[in-house]
Design a protein around this nucleic acid. Structure first.
Length: 709
DNA sequence: CTAAGTCACCTTTTT
DNA sequence: GGTGACTTAG
């Protein structure tokens, strides 16, 4: 490894070993380089075993990248090193140790929709009003309690009224059922390891001895259990290397506590503090703008980024008529830069505050035939059809999992309705629902239903044995054949069903991919990977596509050209209805957005915006625009408004005009051929004969047709 | 019990 | 504009 390529501060951070250390690493200051060099240094120069190193990152993708980069830096085999997210490391520890708390190691990880489903059944079982205790907000309350490490008992004794008491009661029951389902939720992955460490000192000691040196990335976004986890593990050796930037703390709403980083020295006595303040990423103008914004915050550590880079382009402001116009103007600007500077689409990033904003932009990109990549939003593994298949796999691995059982006992339909399912739940008292059902001869339900249930259970049993012995990707195909899933979708004969089946096929290729990339593949390993997978993990910015995502997802990334859309009052900074508005966190979010850019930032806002597909609501520009000094803006007063931007007759639009005879895809009706077009422009009526032999007359601007080339 | 249709709610941000 | 929960006719 070549230490000479680091600047003085970075060298300090890398070479200083022994005792706790906190590095304030500003945006673009070479934080990842420091972390990878530090690990390389520990291994190559200090002689530490890779297996004694623990590195925590914020995403799986970051973990993977870090592994590869360390691998490239050292000559030693780094196979034994542990790099992962808090959640994946928690899951890893729990697979080994959670039997101490009464779970089986094949536990299922519930995502938020599973947790919500479980909360809902509990509210129903307790005969509570679903309006009063709505599953979603109850689940959020439980999650907040877990993340502040409050037990149901504590919540119960602290409760001031019957309402709070009931929440505590639901929480208690929720935990009980998680256990009998042999399942853990996301929060448990952080909290349960701590519970084990506190109850079994010898287990804690084992991990303290294993993880001699601990590195934590994005320390500003740690919450209470994460803070506690690191503190416990490092207690013996006091070798913690934390890297973060309080200005980029944007997960307060999820329990992240900025004081973890601001009070590092109180937690770890005799710790060293270092600041990386040279920015290698952005232009002077971008940094100045970012500074003007973030320096308004009161609750922050004292530091200031500087750069040797050129001043660069000024920040451009786009003022649009509405959200569709905003999208068009952004696309125009991108095409303009692409043509004049000969850039490819993968240099461009479009950011927004809420996922819902992506739709208008996506529509415009599709109409103009520009390829794009959207991160987040409706996630692949959250799609109904994919979740159904995963529920089968989860039940096969873990027959205690009633949430998955409920999901698929009657999918595809096998004559088991609500009444039957209720009876099953009342009759089967063993945690293992499959074994329980096999034992009972008379379920007090119809002959047909009994027969159907027995068949179902036998099938699950048979496949559970097969999955033990054979490769998952092979067994799953047989399994899907057996339940006739392909026919189920094919018989519906709609484009939508066809999409659903192709998603399932994609899911199967995901299993194959997993088996090829993992050195010890198993079905449960696959399921764990899938539960902890986030969209950002699969981001591929080498394709020639524009990338779009929320600002939250963009943390840690960099792009040449960054567009921040929807800078409007109420949208960004977002208006909170019931909570105090956390303007400082919103401002940090804006800071994160600005500092993603290497060359040029464009801010945009619309004068009216539709929400929930309803009527357009007038909007005004965000206060954040005013927080950037005029001299850093290209067009401070905002460009004079003319309607040409919102007309659809410019070059961009004409590229995708429809013609008779073309084959198009409609999201619901599927593929079809255009028979005739009446009228011109966005209001024209298009007659299409769809391939399922239905004929529809659609209006161009609403139909959202995609042309098949 | 099933399938198709209607309705309400939704939108902060995510592991 | 899209999803999931609930309703109603077979």
């Amino acid at each position: 490894m070549d230490i000479k390529s680091l600047n003085e501060k970075q060298k300090d951070a890398v070479l200083n070993v022994g005792g706790p250390m906190l590095v304030f690493a500003g945006a673009g200051s070479g934080k990842t380089r420091v972390l990878t060099y530090k690990i390389a240094y520990l291994i190559e120069e200090i002689g530490m075993l890779p297996s004694n190193i623990l590195a925590v990152t914020f995403t799986n993708k970051a973990a993977q990248e870090m592994k590869t980069r360390v691998h490239d830096l050292v000559d030693v085999d780094i196979h034994g090193i542990t790099i992962g997210t808090f959640h994946s490391i928690g899951a890893m520890i729990l697979r080994k140790e959670v039997w101490n708390l009464g779970w089986d190691s094949n536990f299922t990880i519930y995502d938020s929709s599973d947790s919500k489903a479980l909360v809902k059944t509990i509210i129903k079982d307790l005969n509570l009003d679903l309006k009063m205790y709505d599953p979603k907000s109850t689940m959020i309350k439980i999650s907040i309690a877990k993340n502040s490490m409050q037990t149901p008992e504590k919540l119960m004794s602290d409760s001031k009224n019957i309402n709070e008491e009931t929440i505590a009661q639901i929480y208690l029951e929720y935990n009980k059922q998680l256990k009998s389902n042999n399942s853990l939720d996301f929060d448990d992955l952080l909290v349960k390891p701590i519970e084990i460490f506190n109850s079994f000192p010898e287990i804690l000691k084992k991990y303290q001895d294993k993880f001699r040196y601990i590195l934590v990335d994005e320390y500003q976004d740690t919450n209470k259990p994460q803070f506690e986890f690191i503190k416990l593990l490092s207690k013996l050796n006091q070798d913690v290397f934390a890297v973060g930037d309080d200005d980029q703390s944007i997960y307060g709403w999820r329990g992240a506590d900025i004081s973890n980083i601001l009070n590092f020295q109180n937690t770890y006595e005799k710790s060293k503090i270092l600041k990386l303040e040279q920015n290698y990423r952005s232009t002077q103008n971008i940094l100045n703008a970012a500074w003007a914004v973030v320096s308004r915050n009161k609750n922050r550590a004292d530091k200031k980024l500087w750069t040797d880079n050129d001043s660069g382009d000024k920040i451009k402001l786009i003022s649009a008529y509405n959200e569709r116009d905003e999208a068009l103007r952004i696309i125009k600007d991108i095409s303009n830069i692409k043509d004049t500077k000969r850039e490819s689409y993968n240099k461009f990033l479009i950011l927004y505050r809420t996922n819902a904003q992506s739709r208008a932009i996506e529509d415009a990109l599709i109409k103009n035939g520009i390829l794009y990549n959207v991160v987040g939003g409706v996630k692949f593994y959250d799609r109904k059809e994919v979740k159904d298949v995963l529920a089968y796999l989860r039940l096969i691995i873990n027959p205690n999992d009633r949430i998955s059982f409920d999901r698929i006992i009657n999918f595809p339909a096998r004559g088991i309705g609500k009444t039957t399912i209720d009876k099953i739940h009342n009759l089967v008292d063993s945690d293992n629902i499959i074994d329980g059902l096999m034992k009972i001869d008379d379920l007090n339900i119809g002959k047909k239903q009994t027969h159907s249930i027995k068949l179902f259970c036998k099938m699950i049993k048979i496949y559970s044995e097969r999955f033990d012995k054979e490769l998952a990707s092979i067994v799953i195909k047989d399994f899907l054949d057996e339940i006739n899933l392909k026919e189920f979708y094919k018989n519906q004969n709609t484009g939508e069903a066809e999409d659903r089946w192709s998603n399932i096929e994609e899911c199967i290729s995901g299993i194959v991919e997993y088996e090829n990339s993992s050195n010890n593949p198993s079905l449960s390993g696959y399921l764990e990977e899938v539960s902890l997978f986030t969209d950002i993990d699969s981001l591929n910015d080498t394709h020639d596509k524009i990338t779009m995502m929320t600002i939250h997802s963009s943390k840690g990334l960099e792009f040449d050209y960054v567009y921040i859309a929807g800078l409007e009052k109420g949208l960004f900074p977002i208006e909170r209805l019931f909570e105090d508005e956390n303007i400082e966190e919103e401002r940090r979010l804006f800071y994160v957005a600005l500092t993603r850019s290497q060359k040029r930032v464009v801010l945009s806002y619309a004068k009216s915006r539709r929400r929930f597909g309803g009527e357009p609501i007038p909007a005004s520009r965000s206060r954040f625009i005013n927080e950037i000094p005029d001299e850093l803006l290209d067009n401070p007063v905002y460009e004079s408004f003319n309607r040409s931007g919102s007309n659809y007759n410019d070059k961009l639009e004409s590229d995708c005009d429809l013609r008779k005879g073309q084959v198009v895809i409609h999201k619901i009706f599927g593929k079809g051929r255009i028979e005739r077009i009446d009228g011109v422009g966005v209001n024209s009526k298009i007659t299409i004969l769809f391939f399922n032999n239905t004929r529809k007359k659609l209006i161009y601007k609403y139909a959202n047709l995609e042309v098949v080339k």
